[in-house]
Write a protein that binds this DNA or RNA. Structure first.
Length: 415
RNA sequence: GUGGAUGUAGCUCAGUUGGUGGAGCUCCUGGUUGUGGCCCAGGCGGUCGCGCGUUCAAGUCGCGUCAUCCACCCCA
C-alpha cells in the first residue's frame, strides 16, 4: 500500500520539538497573564469576508495566500491566516465593552505559500490583543510584554524595530509626498514590483529589499517627518517609555507592515539566526478596525509571535524522566504489574509497566533507555512470595520489598 | 507563482569509467538458568522516490513526474 503523507507545508511535532512548543505556551500564559491578559480560544475557520475586510482586499495575504473554500451550503469559509481578525470578531460578538480588554490566544494559522525555513503553510502564533486603550502607554506596555516574554524564554540577540505609520489624518499627506518623490524618480532604477507599487501601494516600495530600490528610496521622504502633531507626540511618548524601561530598539523608517489595518505604532522583532524569514514577532496599533468590523469604536493594539521561528532559536527540551519502569519476567505477573503501576501513580510516581513478559536483560535495556531512576522486576518467584525487586539504576543496588510496601519503599528512596 | 539543490536500510550517509547495493547508529538475539550501560559476535531490515527511454547491462546516463530543503516574493 502506498503511504499517505502529510500535506506540503504542514508538520508533525514529536518530542523534543513538541515539548518546546508546550514550554513556549506555558511561559506565554505566565508572562501575558501577569499583565492581565485573559486567554480566549476562537475558531480556526471563519467567514472569508472577515479576513477580506480586516486584513485588506489588496494585501498579498488575502489575494493569494488564503485557504478558502465553500462549505456544503456554498458559503465561503477561510482557514485563518492570522489571529487578530477572529479575536476581534469574538470580542465584538461577546458584547465588546468599552473598558480595557487584554486578550491572549494561540494556535495554528494557515497561509498557502511555498514553504521554506521558518515558513510553513500551517504555522503557530502566540497572539496578544489589547482593546480599548489609545494611550501611548498601552503601546509601550504591549511591546514590553512581548520583550519580557522573549527575555523569559532566554533568547539572545534579537532586535526590536519601531516605526509609526501615522493616522488617517496625516498619512495621506505622507502618501502624497512619497508619490511625488517616486514620480520624480527614474522608473528604470526601480524593480518591476516597485514600478507597480508606485501606483498601487507606494508604502511598500520603502520595504523593498532590492539594493537598487533601496538606494533610490534612501532619500525618500520619511513618515516620521510627516506625522501630525498628535501622532508625533504619541510616538515620542512610546519611545520615551521604552527608553525609561531600558529596552533597546531602533527606528526603522522603512518598517511597513503587510496588513492594511495598522496605523501609528508598528513594531517587529527580528533575528539574524533563523534564515531569510527573520521576523520572529510583529504587531502594531489598529484603531478603527473594531468599528470597521461592526463593533464599538474602541482602539486596539496587538502583536503575533511565530512559534516555529521562536523554536529555531530555542534549545531542544527533554521530556521529564520517568521515576520507574516495571519489568515483567513472567506472563502470570502482567496483571499484577499493571495494578502496582496504578498504585504507584496514585502516590505521585511517574512510570511505565511492561505489557509483555521478556528477559530481565531486555527489560533492563529498556529501563536504561528510558533513563528511569528505578527499575522494578516482577517474575514468577516474586509473585509466589508477594514481593517485588527494586533496582536502583544508578548504583545497581537491588532490594526485595513486599508488594504492599512498594510505594512506601520508593518514597524513602526518593527522599 | 519563479529559481536552485537534494531524493539509496527506521535514522545519518558512502556507492569509482554503467557490470548482481554498503557503513555507522537504532532494533533483536547471544556472549550470563532471572539482570542494564561499555565491549565482542551474529541477525532483522532496501520497489535505490516513481515512470519512460538509451544500453547486452542503469543506484550510476537522458527525459518526465512527485516529494523535500533553501532562496525570491511576502510575512509570524
Amino acid at each position: 500500500m502506498s503511504r499517505i503523507q502529510k500535506i506540503k507545508g504542514f508538520s508533525d511535532l514529536f518530542p523534543p520539538e513538541s515539548t518546546v512548543f508546550t514550554h513556549m505556551e506555558t511561559v506565554a500564559r505566565e508572562v501575558f497573564g501577569a499583565y492581565g491578559c485573559r486567554e480566549v480560544r476562537v475558531p480556526i475557520l471563519e467567514r472569508t469576508e472577515l479576513f477580506a475586510r480586516s486584513i485588506g482586499e489588496e494585501t498579498d495575504v488575502v489575494q493569494k495566500e488564503m485557504y478558502t473554500f465553500a462549505d456544503r451550503k456554498g458559503r465561503s469559509l477561510t482557514l485563518r491566516p492570522e489571529a487578530t481578525a477572529g479575536v476581534l470578531r469574538a470580542f465584538i460578538e461577546d458584547g465588546g465593552t468599552e473598558g480595557v480588554t487584554k486578550l491572549f490566544t494561540c494556535g495554528p494559522m494557515f497561509r498557502y505559500e511555498r514553504p521554506q525555513k521558518g515558513r510553513m503553510r500551517q504555522f503557530h502564533q502566540l497572539d496578544v490583543e489589547v482593546l480599548g486603550a489609545s494611550a501611548p502607554q498601552a503601546d509601550a506596555e504591549v511591546i514590553l510584554m512581548l520583550w519580557t516574554f522573549l527575555e523569559r524564554l532566554g533568547i539572545q540577540s534579537l532586535t526590536l524595530e519601531l516605526n509609526s505609520l501615522g493616522c488617517p489624518q496625516c498619512r495621506p499627506t505622507f502618501h502624497q509626498a512619497l508619490r511625488d518623490f517616486l514620480d520624480a524618480v527614474d522608473a528604470a532604477a526601480l524593480c518591476e514590483d516597485c514600478r507597480r507599487r508606485t501606483t498601487t501601494n507606494p508604502l511598500r516600495v520603502l520595504d523593498c529589499k532590492v539594493p537598487g530600490c533601496r538606494e533610490v528610496t534612501a532619500a525618500a521622504p520619511r513618515i516620521a517627518d510627516h506625522l501630525c502633531p498628535e501622532c508625533a507626540a504619541h510616538f515620542a511618548r512610546v519611545r520615551a517609555i521604552l527608553d525609561a524601561a531600558a529596552t533597546p530598539y531602533t527606528i526603522n523608517h522603512r518598517l511597513v507592515r503587510g496588513l492594511d489595518y495598522y496605523q501609528r505604532t508598528t513594531f517587529e522583532v527580528l533575528s539574524g539566526d533563523i534564515g531569510a524569514q527573520s521576523a520572529v514577532a510583529g504587531g502594531g496599533r489598529y484603531d478603527g478596525l473594531v468599528a470597521a468590523l461592526g463593533g464599538p469604536a474602541v482602539p486596539g493594539i496587538g502583536f503575533a509571535c511565530g512559534m516555529e521561528r521562536l523554536a529555531l532559536l530555542l534549545p531542544p527540551l527533554a521530556d521529564q524522566a520517568m521515576d520507574f519502569y516495571l519489568a515483567v519476567l513472567d506472563e502470570t505477573a502482567l496483571d499484577t504489574a499493571l495494578i502496582l503501576g496504578q498504585t504507584l501513580r496514585r502516590h505521585g510516581f511517574r512510570g511505565e509497566t511492561a505489557f509483555e513478559a521478556k528477559s530481565p536483560k531486555a527489560h533492563l535495556r529498556q529501563a536504561n533507555k528510558l533513563g528511569v531512576k528505578t527499575c522494578l522486576l516482577l517474575g514468577g518467584d516474586e509473585m509466589a512470595r508477594g514481593v517485588i525487586v527494586v533496582k536502583d539504576m544508578a548504583t545497581g543496588v537491588q532490594t526485595t520489598v513486599a508488594q504492599d510496601d512498594l510505594a512506601q519503599a520508593l518514597g524513602f528512596r526518593a527522599a
